[in-house]
């Protein structure tokens, strides 16, 4: 995408014009950013020893996957694991355009962080991430997972 930036010192109102061929997820992300509506997740380190009470702002692009365990939601990033205050379904809705898709009752994965998708001999399908971890794509969610990928691919033109 070509980006033109113009610095005008005495502009009365800062504005951005976006020329797009189709409303792709990346365009929606730009709109969210311009409107200051880009979703950010607030979390605290899952490790209690590291938790000093301050909240950490998490960019969805840095999250590998979300895991819901014992009524708690955790975000797995390269920098560590963070506990979130959101619900899994609200994250699913909020992060749809950011590559997050439900693959089981308790997991949302970021497809931009998936290194490999591989079935094992037991026919379980796993998504492998850059950090070496893996998440099982549950049989019941496989169809919706495929539909999500096709839709994302179509939207990207």
């Amino acid at each position: 995408m070509k980006l033109n930036l113009y610095e005008i010192k005495n502009v009365s109102e800062e504005h951005a014009d976006i020329y797009y061929a189709g409303m792709r997820p990346v365009i929606k992300q730009l709109i969210d950013t311009a409107k200051s509506e880009r979703p950010v997740l607030q979390g605290r380190p899952a490790d209690e020893d590291q938790d000093d009470g301050t909240e950490v702002i998490l960019d969805p692009a840095n999250i590998y996957y979300l895991d819901h365990i014992d009524r708690r939601l955790f975000a797995y990033t390269r920098d560590g694991v963070f506990r979130l205050m959101n619900t899994l379904s609200s994250c699913e809705e909020m992060l749809w355009n950011y590559g997050f898709v439900r693959v089981s009752k308790s997991n949302l994965i970021n497809i931009y962080k998936v290194r490999q998708l591989k079935p094992d001999v037991n026919m379980r399908v796993y998504a492998f991430f850059d950090n070496g971890e893996r998440i099982c794509v549950n049989r019941s969610y496989r169809k919706s997972f495929g539909e999500y990928l096709r839709k994302m691919r179509r939207m990207q033109g």
Partner: peptide
């Protein structure tokens, strides 16, 4: 057939993920 479908479907889905990642 089911076994084959799981493998072929996964391969297609992985290709889709690669394409989506490359376009982004």
């Amino acid at each position: 057939l089911y076994y084959y479908r799981v493998f072929s479907e996964t391969r297609k889905q992985e290709e889709l993920i690669r394409e989506i990642q490359d376009m982004e």
